Simulated assay, not measured.
Amino acid sequence: MRAYGLTLATFFLATFALGAQAKALGKNDRYVCSWGSDIAAGAQQSKLSGVTLYSARKKLQVRKFPKPWMRMTAMGITEQTYNSQSRLKPTAIKQTYYEQCVQHAVAQR
């Protein structure tokens, strides 16, 4: 079975390697990646459910965030998700976002 040009074995090896990288990251980096992946998954769920970008943004405006930077970051993630042509399920979006965030954080080190 091939998915995006990768064999299933390669996919599992890559997933295992990302898990090891995630453990090497600090607690804050893992938290930020997890939080962002939750925002992306929620935005994808809203998009697939027919919620407009305007409505999704309004919900974020009234939501309480623990850190000041989170509101604008959530807006950006939501807008990018809505602009994407992707029809993947929210769980796939969450996993993809988290994996790419971890890769980015590791590359920044």
Rank of each mutant, 00 (worst) to 15 (best):
M1K: 06
M1I: 04
A3S: 11
G5A: 06
L6V: 06
T7M: 09
T7E: 11
A9R: 11
T10V: 08
F11H: 00
F12G: 04
F12E: 09
A14P: 02
T15C: 08
T15K: 15
T15E: 15
F16D: 09
F16W: 10
F16R: 12
G19P: 07
G19H: 10
A20C: 01
A20E: 07
A20G: 00
A20V: 13
Q21K: 14
Q21S: 14
Q21L: 13
A22C: 06
A22I: 01
A22W: 02
A24C: 04
L25A: 12
K27A: 14
K27W: 12
N28K: 14
N28A: 13
N28T: 10
R30Y: 08
Y31E: 09
Y31N: 07
G36I: 03
D38L: 06
I39V: 15
A40F: 05
A41Q: 03
G42T: 01
G42F: 04
A43M: 08
A43Y: 01
A43Q: 07
Q44D: 05
Q45S: 07
Q45C: 04
S46F: 01
S46D: 15
S46I: 03
L48Y: 00
L48M: 11
S49M: 02
G50R: 02
G50V: 03
V51W: 01
V51Q: 05
V51D: 01
T52M: 10
Y54K: 11
A56G: 03
R57W: 01
R57S: 03
K59H: 08
K59W: 02
L60C: 06
Q61Y: 08
R63N: 03
K64N: 13
K67I: 05
K67N: 05
K67A: 08
P68K: 12
W69C: 00
M70F: 03
M70P: 04
R71G: 02
M72P: 02
M72T: 03
M72Y: 05
M75V: 09
M75F: 15
G76Y: 05
G76T: 08
G76M: 13
I77F: 00
I77H: 00
T78R: 04
E79N: 12
Q80H: 08
Y82A: 07
Y82C: 09
S84E: 07
S84G: 11
S84L: 03
Q85N: 14
Q85H: 11
Q85C: 00
S86T: 15
S86A: 14
S86Y: 04
S86N: 10
R87Y: 09
L88T: 01
L88I: 00
K89G: 07
T91H: 07
A92G: 02
A92V: 10
I93D: 02
I93T: 12
I93R: 03
I93Y: 01
I93M: 11
K94N: 10
K94W: 09
Q95S: 11
Q95Y: 04
Q95F: 10
Q95P: 02
T96Y: 10
T96L: 15
T96M: 14
Y97G: 04
Y97P: 00
Y98G: 04
E99G: 07
E99A: 15
Q100F: 09
C101F: 08
V102E: 12
V102K: 11
V102P: 09
A105Q: 15
V106K: 12
V106Q: 13
A107E: 13
A107W: 13
A107D: 12
Q108R: 13
Q108P: 02
Q108G: 05
Q108I: 08
R109S: 13
R109A: 08
R109C: 00
